[in-house]
Design a protein around this nucleic acid. Sequence first.
DNA 1: AATTTTGTTCAAAAAAAATTGAACAAAATG
DNA 2: CATTTTGTTCAATTTTTTTTGAACAAAATT
Lengths: 183, 183
Amino acid sequence: MSSSPQASIHDPERLSQESMDSNSDKLKPIQREVIALFVNGVRVLGLPKSVGEIYGLLFISPEPLALDVIVSRLEISKGSVSQGLRFLRNLGAVKPVYVSGDRRDHFTAVAELKKLANGFIRGELNPNLESATIRLDELKSMARNDDSPNSDFFKERIRRIGNWRRRGGMLLKIVNRFLGRTT
Amino acid sequence: MSSSPQASIHDPERLSQESMDSNSDKLKPIQREVIALFVNGVRVLGLPKSVGEIYGLLFISPEPLALDVIVSRLEISKGSVSQGLRFLRNLGAVKPVYVSGDRRDHFTAVAELKKLANGFIRGELNPNLESATIRLDELKSMARNDDSPNSDFFKERIRRIGNWRRRGGMLLKIVNRFLGRTT
DNA sequence: AATTTTGTTCAAAAAAAATTGAACAAAATG
DNA sequence: CATTTTGTTCAATTTTTTTTGAACAAAATT
């Protein structure tokens, strides 16, 4: 480094280019609260806390942030942030943004509910629906080759699961259309 | 006990009243498969395996089952089954059924998708939405009392979260209406 | 009223999931 | 081309969640 040994995120020289406020490692109380809200939110979706923290921080940060900065602001490990960002990128909940004069990748939150929902449906829900479909088909053929006294009962139940899945698929489309329309 | 010491579920006398098949501790392959499907299904909802096993077993059993029987068929602990049944009862996913001549409580699966979805929404989703609403109101007042350079950005973001919540609530109603209509 | 049956509770154990951090690779810098 | 920066990977650790099982209470049975 040019100016001093052991230069780091905390090096005053790094901060001089941008407003002190937005680059400070300290989170504002409002930001902490928003992040806490997201941590709770993602728990409902079965996602780890760190993912909620990362998305929340990006959502409530005016500028795109680099991995380093996320690590120091949230005080969680680089590994967690790296994995969390990959997950969020795969879902389309976060996108990379080019920041001139900085070699590091920067990220912002994708904040359109429709996009978030679609990403979650594609990444988390559809794969499950599809594997259920395969298993269900196997079940149907098992039921056809069954001639126990309860065979009819089993067939009725399996048909019912098939109905659930069908309606589940319809619901996802309805959700999608609804989020496309609403403001 | 009248007939022998250590009489249990396995006592032949208990079985004599009903068909051997449906009272056997052995699960049929079809039943195992259906249960596995439910175990996967409830994982998407963030519920423990045992809950999926219990619901699945009841769903794919022709007669209502007592706690004892669930324990021996699934080979899981009495504590798990007791807790799992309570949870499912609270959700309205399982209901008690009177079986004449048997002191034990018996349960069947509630198999209407609409009821299941409503129970889950009431028991798991709504409480979260409500606590989010409270936190969000606090956030709004924090944002009003904030005069940092980023204040406008924060306000915009908080407004956006409010929109998400509003649309989320609308979606739950749409889901409900849809499940009421469809066959 | 003693005993057995039935079901709940909860502390401890086990299992599962998330997080850390150090080693590593790739790319940029000097 | 040696060094630094940036980001990934994954085994080990920590944390969280789930399950177990024994103690207990309530109700029914003998």
